[in-house]
């Protein structure tokens, strides 16, 4: 049985059409003791069929330890979004980006492919000014209509800066992590484990938080 019905399939196909360059999706998974890995694998299998510019690489979290280490993957299921040269920009989805989160997933695929909205010069300057290593975690739920905005903003920052990494974390898939950061409203953004905010903020305001780290 497939995850996408015909209507969703068509919509996704249409949404992926403007892709410029190839994008490679790397999945980290395993067969046992991972409830959502199978569905995530199915999801990526189906989505990568919908554009000839999308490819899928599957790694086993246990046997391909060196790869997991290379990409900094510490839990599964994990999706790492790589560019056409298979370069890593620190952009990950931990958990299946279904529900509303499909929007942030498609958005970063398009942006990674080279189709992106120009950022104003002042913001680009601030992003280039970041020299510390920054790790953004955005906790979401799949039923939250505005969570994709928070995820997309974090991912865009990661795409523009080699010092920034950004993860989407699906809160019900990674319960202990969500509890660790007291996540009880989403989207909740945690930066380097110290700065945090609940809700969506435009890119400039997220930079305010990053600059405080």
């Amino acid at each position: 049985m497939s995850l996408f019905d015909d209507k969703v399939k068509k919509q996704l196909q249409e949404a992926l059409k403007p892709m410029v360059n190839n994008v490679n999706l790397a999945l980290f998974t395993q067969t046992l003791e991972c409830n959502t890995c199978r569905d995530t694998h199915l999801f990526l299998g189906e989505i990568s069929e919908l554009s000839d510019k999308l490819t899928l690489t599957v790694w086993n979290f246990q046997t391909d330890k060196d790869k997991a280490e290379q990409y900094g993957v510490d839990k599964i299921p994990a999706i790492v979004v790589l560019d056409s040269e298979n370069r890593d920009h620190g952009i990950k989805f931990y958990g299946l980006p279904g529900g509303y989160e499909i929007n942030s997933f498609i958005r970063i695929i398009l942006e990674m492919s080279g189709l992106k909205e120009q950022l104003p010069d002042d913001l680009m300057k601030r992003i280039q000014g970041i020299k510390k290593d920054i790790h953004i975690q955005v906790f979401i739920s799949l039923t939250c209509p505005y969570c994709p905005d928070a995820v997309s903003t974090a991912h865009r920052l990661a795409l523009e800066s080699e010092h920034i990494k950004a993860d989407m974390v699906e809160s019900s898939t990674f319960v202990p992590l969500a509890i660790k950061f007291n996540v009880s409203s989403v989207p909740k953004t945690v930066i380097n484990g110290t700065q945090e905010f609940v809700g969506t903020n435009p890119l400039g305001k997220v930079l305010d938080f990053i600059e405080k780290v």
């Binding site: 995850l3 299946l96 279904g98 529900g99 499909i102 929007n103 992106k116 209509p145």
Partner: peptide, 12 residues
């Protein structure tokens, strides 16, 4: 599983 796709296109 539901997929609530709303992204029309990335506006360039």
């Amino acid at each position: 599983m539901e997929f609530n796709l709303s992204l029309s296109a990335v506006a360039t």
